[in-house]
């Protein structure tokens, strides 16, 4: 268990009240490094992520971030500290700079070029129509856009699921770079190879409940074979 806690979830339930997708989720998520959330399809991984930036609210239990109740934080304020990238990169109309201005209306061209280079893209893309970016470029542009709000945590909901292998490796490298710079990354994945490449910690969700949480090396020896399979533990 990490010594420094970011999000703390206590007996959290989420989804329709009559048939919650998540039940009794109690876990403290670390504030540093990359935590990968794994689980079978429909287990509630994405639902959990949406609770952390209040795109959805839990139907039971409590969530705190750095000891402050999420329910007491205005969603726009929370979301500027907790950035999110999605599986399908949501592109807004206009150029890359126009996209950046949705996150920060005051952003200058110089800052825009700097943040593009920071995520490994050419500064020359700033004036390109965002709709013409490739899948990998679009996803990295979305990371750059999210960085303009200076988040302390980045939530990533299977951001490489629709990308080819080169783009996938590039986005994973970017996540590691951001984690090394002090931005905690919570990354949903069902790709065991990716889990092995990325994870510092792993949270395994099975049937809407926490099946396991801990350092990747700890979970390699977990008693539950489902957990070991989800993280691609060596035989």
């Amino acid at each position: 268990m990490a010594s420094s806690t970011g999000f703390s979830l206590l007996e959290v339930a989420a989804g329709p009240a009559e048939a919650p997708i998540l039940t009794d989720i109690t876990v403290d998520l670390p504030e540093h490094g990359i935590t990968v959330i794994v689980g079978p399809s429909g287990s509630g991984k994405s639902t959990l992520l949406r609770l952390l930036n209040r795109l959805d609210d839990p139907v039971g239990g409590a969530i705190t971030w750095r000891d402050e109740a999420l329910s007491a934080m205005p969603p726009p304020t929370l979301r500027r500290q907790v950035g999110t990238i999605f599986q399908r990169a949501p592109l807004f109309e206009g150029s890359v700079l126009d996209n950046f201005r949705v996150a920060d209306p005051e952003v200058s061209g110089e800052r825009g070029r700097h943040v593009l280079e920071h995520v490994g893209l050419s500064a020359g893309l700033l004036d390109r129509d965002a709709a013409t970016l490739s899948g990998g470029e679009a996803q990295r542009m979305c990371v750059a856009r999210a960085l303009l709000t200076r988040p302390e945590v980045l939530l990533a909901d299977e951001p490489t699921a629709a990308l080819d292998i080169d783009a996938r490796i590039a986005v994973e490298g970017l996540a590691r770079q951001l984690a090394d710079e002090g931005i905690a990354v919570l990354w949903v994945s069902h790709d065991t190879d990716q889990v092995r490449r990325l994870a510092d910690h792993v949270l395994a969700i099975v049937d809407g409940k926490v099946a396991a949480f801990g350092h990747l090396s700890e979970l390699d020896m977990h008693a539950d074979p489902i957990v070991r399979r989800l993280i691609g533990a060596p035989a």
Binding site: L55, T77, R79, R80, G83, F86, P90, F92, V102, A103
Partner: peptide, 13 residues
Amino acid sequence: RGVIEGRLALGLS
């Protein structure tokens, strides 16, 4: 919805 949630995620009301 995806695009709207993209804006929400950037802190827009």
